[in-house]
Design a protein around this nucleic acid. Sequence first.
DNA 1: GTAAGTTACGAGCGACGTAAAAATG
DNA 2: CATTTTTACGTCGCTCGTAACTTAC
Lengths: 282, 282
Amino acid sequence: MFELKQLKQLVTVAESGTLSKAAELLHLSQPALSRSMQKLEEELQVSLFERQKNKISLNQNGEMAMEYARKVLRQSQDLITHIRVLDRRQHTISVASCAPTPLWEIKPMLSAIFPEITISTVIKGKNQLLQGLNEDTYQMVIMPEPLIAPDIYCTKYGDEHLYFSLPPDHPLSGCKELPFKSLDGETMLLLSQIGFWHDLHIQKMPNTHFLIQEELFAFGELVKASALPSFTSDIIIKRAGSASNRINIPISDIEANVTYYCLCKSNQKKKLLPFFEKLKNE
Amino acid sequence: MFELKQLKQLVTVAESGTLSKAAELLHLSQPALSRSMQKLEEELQVSLFERQKNKISLNQNGEMAMEYARKVLRQSQDLITHIRVLDRRQHTISVASCAPTPLWEIKPMLSAIFPEITISTVIKGKNQLLQGLNEDTYQMVIMPEPLIAPDIYCTKYGDEHLYFSLPPDHPLSGCKELPFKSLDGETMLLLSQIGFWHDLHIQKMPNTHFLIQEELFAFGELVKASALPSFTSDIIIKRAGSASNRINIPISDIEANVTYYCLCKSNQKKKLLPFFEKLKNE
DNA sequence: GTAAGTTACGAGCGACGTAAAAATG
DNA sequence: CATTTTTACGTCGCTCGTAACTTAC
C-alpha cells in the first residue's frame, strides 16, 4: 500500500511541473523525491510519468492518480479538522449570554465544577443565542426570558435591576425612581458589549446621544471624571460598588428589571447537572 | 501528517476490539501496534482510546476517526483499482466477435501492428457486442452485418460461407448444394463457442439433435471418427483443410453466407488506423 | 495463571542526503 | 554551462520484535 506522503508528493509534482521545484516545496532532496515517485509507481503497478531523460511529466495514469490523490488528501484533512473540533467540544463548554453580568458568576461556577474543562463565553443577541443553542455552537445560553420548548431545559438564574447613575448635581438626582424617558434626549455614557441592554436603551431612549465606550476601564474613568449620566445595575453595584460621585436611581420601566434564565438542550442537561444543582442550592 | 498504515490499523483495532487480536490480523507485534496508535493520537493531537490499565477501547473521538479512516481507505482502494483499469485499457485492445473465425486472422494482425499491446478476444452475441462497444468494454467488435450509427466507424472485413461436412456414404453427399432444412432432424456434431452460428443453427434446424463438443481437438477427432454430419466453412477449410473422409457441400440459404464487419467507436478509429489501413490493402 | 497493555532496549531496514553521471537546450 | 533527472553509496532514524513489568479476571 502506498502512503499519504507519496500522494502529497504526487500532487505537489503535478502542481509544480518539475521534480526539482516540488522537492524544494516539500523540503526534500530531489533524488529522494525521484525515488519516492518511482516507488509509488511500483506500488500501484502502473506508470505515472512520461520520462524523457531530463524531463518528466504526468501521463494519463498520473493525471487520474493525481485527481484521486487530491480527494484522499482532502478527506484526510477533513479527518483532522473534524476530529479536533469534536475533541474540543468535549473539553469546552461554550456559554453565550444576552448580557455580561450573569457570566460574572456563572463562568467561575462552571470552572470550579468542571476543572478539566475550558469555559468559553460570548455575548450575543437573543436570536443568535437560540440559533447557536440549536446548532450546538453553545451548550448553554443565558436569556432575559424563559423559553418553553421541547428538548430544551430552562431554569431561572437570577434578576438584574437597572439604575441610572447620575451626578449629584443632576436635576433629577433627588428622585426615588425614574422612567427611561425622563432622561431621553440627554447625552449618556454607554459601555459596549452589553448585549440586549444596548437594543433596549436605543428603543426606550431614541433621542438620547450615547457615547459608546469599548473598554471597561476607560468607561469607569469617564464615569468618575464626567458629569454625564450612565447606567448601572444592582449586580454591578454589588460586585464593583458604586462610583463615589454618583447617585443611583432605579429605573421604573418594567423592562429595566429582567430575570435571566439558563437554557440548554435536554440531552446536555445530564452533563451540566452539577451546575444546575449548585444553582438551585444558592 | 498521519499515514494510511495507521488508519488501517485503527480500523482493524476497532473491528477486532483488542490490540492483540488486531496486531495478529495485521501481522505485527502487539507492542508495535500499541506504539503506532499512540503516535496516531499524538499526530492528531487528540485522544482516541479509553485506557484502563489492561483494557483499551475507542472513545468518541476514536469512533469518529474510525469512520473517517474507513472513507479514506475506501477512496485509496478506489484509486488503486481505477488507475489499474485505466492502465490496462491503454495496454490492451479488447476485441469481441460474433464468431471465432475472423479472430484467427485479426488477432495476429493486431499483435503484429501493436507489438507492445495485449490483444484480448472473446466471442459474444450481437447485443452484447454492441453494448460492450458502447460501454468501452471492447474497443472493436466483429459483427455479421454492417451498422450505420453516429460515432461508430464500420468497415467490411470479409466473407464466410458455411458448408455441411458429410461422410461420403451420406445419402445427400452427392448434391451440389443443400439448404439447412435438408438435414434437419438428423443428429449433428457441433462445436461450442461459435457465436452467432449457434443461434442460427438452432433457428434453421429446430428438429436437429446437436452433440455439443467443447474442445476443438476433441471435435476434430469426432468428425474424423464418426459418420455424423457437421458444419465447416471456407475459412476453416482454407486454414485447417478438410477432413479426408468428408465431403463439403455448400449451404444454399442466404443466412449461411455472411459478411463480417469491423466496428469501433469513431474516437478509437485513430488509434486503430494502422489496422484498418492494412485491412484495406489486403 | 492467563491474557492484555505499556515501557525499555537493541537491531535492521528504509528513507534521506551527497556525490556523480547523463542528457538537454 | 546551467538545469533536470537518475543511479550509487553511506548514514541516520524509525519501526519492528523481544523481553520485562503491571494489571485485571
